[in-house]
Design a protein around this nucleic acid. Structure first.
Length: 569
RNA sequence: GCGCGCAUAGCUCAACGGAUAGAGCACUAGUCUUCGGAACUAGUGAUGGGGGUUCGAUUCCCUCUGCGCGCACCA
């Protein structure tokens, strides 16, 4: 599978032999010491000590004495209560560098597909509203999750469920009819305009209770598909969907299937009728609910007392439609944590309807501002396009300082890549379970733990490779003898395991952290060990091979996060 | 009120129950006849309070305090 994995297995095997039948160590027990000077792998003896009622330090000494170093294991040493294993850098390094070179962009991915199909629903945006930075987290988390699942061998079907017919749309259409004439409607900047109308309508509704009824009227018309509101809806919906699609395209989001909320109205009505027949759905205070108090999930509201369907009602037929069309083994919903209760209610309802497939709510916390939560109702959102353009401008200024001779087109392209790297890395470097307090200054900083830093590391590596001229790299790990080279080799070997574990628990920040650590190590190497200056050509060739490998892994890892690398910046 | 989550350095974040609690930003002092300074080296500086479980707790349990989110007609 990988050098890292194989070596770990070998250590487990040696431990087993030394321990006899009494104890069988697991892969999780073989850990990394805090400092590589202590060893490359460590086995703690505490659990063992408990069973044997002996001092763990004594056990460590005895165990270390029993294991003969051979092959990739160079030395075994007891330190405190740990048995530490030192690897033969030459053998280990040779294997890892060959591995990376042979696999290239495939390094870190599973060798073959496991033929298991997963559906990932994400990018569930609203039409008639603007894309803001909060949505970006959903898009990036979803995209990275899809890439990771594919990397470990799943067949992934990415789907976007677009909300093109909810209360927000009714509000917008009401506002259009009330405040604007046909002549004012324009496809140009449609989303910005529609977003503005939505905010105006919301404010009107708050000031006048009569407006609420009128909006409800519009919603009725839209749901039934008849009346003049429908014409207006169809027209603006098309503009809005086009705008969404162009944003998704710009971000390179993988989406194989599009579902729309408007398609789910009829099936939802049908499903509710059946639920009522079975006694699962009941009337309560004029609304239709599913009583989930047995599961301690309260009341799941499907239909409002004015007869209009709620978002939740349409999720039910959607689940069945996905099953019918794609029969995935499991379904992942990438949805904001604030909807946790609603997701649990949906899952509980589906289970009551004998829906058997595994359902997972991949939740992430939301993006907020220092002043408080963003909301398009309040109109205090930071739009995606605004942030993007600010970032590109900054990246352009910075790049121009360094390369005044570059042509405009190339400059622009480079600046875009840097800007998107900053944006994506900024959103993905944090544990998805934690709220992001968005700070524009932090995102605009290209120093330290950022996307541009990683791009910079990559560009530097490419620069060295270019300067090497005719000198070709050659994998000869016997020339990679300094401690920092050893650390780099070991770090490179750990990459496949990072991919595998991240694809398993979706703690996406671990991938970002790994890449940054790798880049930091490379920076140390860069300053301590001159690559091209060494007199021995073989040493230079070996170091070039190490540079290539680091570049490859950075490229592969960033690709997972949707970040492109560049040769110069 | 009930439920879920969070609390680590001045700020933003790390740490499968394990060895000396790590980074980035900011600040201070350095590195430079530079394989690209969007860099590197070093310094200052932290686990909200109180109990408990454990050989060992930032991590698990209880409790207090503070904050966020959700809890019937928004999504």
């Amino acid at each position: 599978m990988s050098v890292y994995y194989d070596t770990k297995q070998q250590i487990i095997k040696e431990l087993k032999t030394a321990l006899g039948k009494g104890y069988s160590p697991t892969a999780a027990e073989v850990e990394s010491p805090p400092d590589l000077a202590m060893g490359d792998f460590a086995f703690p003896c505490f659990t063992l000590a408990k069973g044997l009622k002996k001092n763990p330090a004594e056990i460590a000494v005895e165990l270390a004495a029993k294991i003969e170093p051979k092959g990739v294991i160079k030395k075994v040493k007891a330190t405190g209560s740990y048995v530490n294993f030192f690897l033969n850098t030459e053998i280990f390094g040779q294997e890892i560098l060959n591995n990376i070179k042979n696999l290239g962009t495939g390094y870190g991915k599973a060798a073959e597909e496991n033929h298991r199909r997963i559906m990932v629903e994400y990018a569930n945006l609203n039409t008639h509203k603007e894309v803001h930075i909060g949505h970006l987290r959903n898009l990036f988390v979803g995209q990275t999750t899809i890439n990771l699942l594919r990397a470990v061998g799943y067949e992934v079907i990415p789907v976007s469920y677009t909300n093109d017919l909810g209360t927000h749309v009714a509000k917008c259409v009401w506002g259009l009819k009330k405040f604007y004439g046909d002549y004012e409607l324009n496809e140009e900047n449609a989303t910005t305009f529609l977003g503005k109308v939505y905010t105006e309508a919301t404010q009107a509704e708050e000031n006048d209770p009569k407006v609420k009824e009128e909006i409800s009227q519009v919603f009725h018309e839209l749901e039934s598909g008849k009346g003049e509101s429908v014409v207006l809806w169809k027209k603006t919906r098309k503009w809005s969907v086009n705008d969404l699609k162009s944003v998704f395209k710009e971000l390179g989001l993988p989406i194989s299937v599009w579902y729309f909320e408007s398609e789910m109205i009829k099936p939802a009505r049908k499903a509710i009728k059946e639920l009522e027949k079975k006694g699962l759905a009941v009337k309560s205070q004029g609304a239709t609910i599913i009583d989930l108090s047995e599961e301690k999930l309260g009341a799941y509201l499907l239909v409002k007392s004015d007869g209009m369907l709620l978002y939740a009602a349409k999720d039910i037929p959607l689940a069945f439609r996905k099953e019918e069309e794609y029969h995935p083994e499991k379904s992942i919903y990438v949805v904001d944590t604030r909807q946790s209760l609603a997701m649990q209610q949906l899952f509980a309802t589906l289970r009551r309807m004998d829906f058997k497939k595994e359902l997972i709510h991949l939740s992430y916390d939301f993006v907020t501002l220092k002043e408080g939560a963003m909301s398009s109702r309040k109109g205090n959102i930071i739009r995606y396009e605004t942030l993007r353009d600010t970032l590109i401008d900054l990246a352009k200024t910075e790049t121009q300082k360094r390369h005044p001779e570059w042509k405009e087109k190339f400059l622009q392209k480079t600046a875009r890549t840097i800007a998107f790297a900053a944006l994506r890395f900024g959103m993905l470097r944090q544990d998805p379970d934690k709220k992001i307090v968005f700070d524009i200054n932090e995102v605009l900083s290209f120093d330290g733990y950022t996307g541009p830093y990683l791009l910079y590391t990559y560009a530097r590596i490419q620069s060295i490779l270019r300067k090497a001229g005719g000198l070709k790299s050659e994998i000869k790990s016997k020339h990679l003898v300094t401690p920092i080279e050893h650390q780099l080799l070991f770090k490179l070997a750990g990459y496949p395991e990072v991919i595998a574990s991240t694809a398993h628990d979706f703690k996406l920040d671990r991938l970002a952290e790994y890449l940054f650590d790798l880049a930091k190590l490379f920076a140390t190497f860069y300053h301590e060990v001159p690559v091209l200056q060494d007199e021995n050509k073989e040493v230079v060739a070996a170091r070039l091979a190490l540079c290539e490998a680091v570049g490859q892994v950075i490229k592969n890892g960033l690709w997972m996060m949707g970040i492109e690398t560049i040769e110069e910046m």
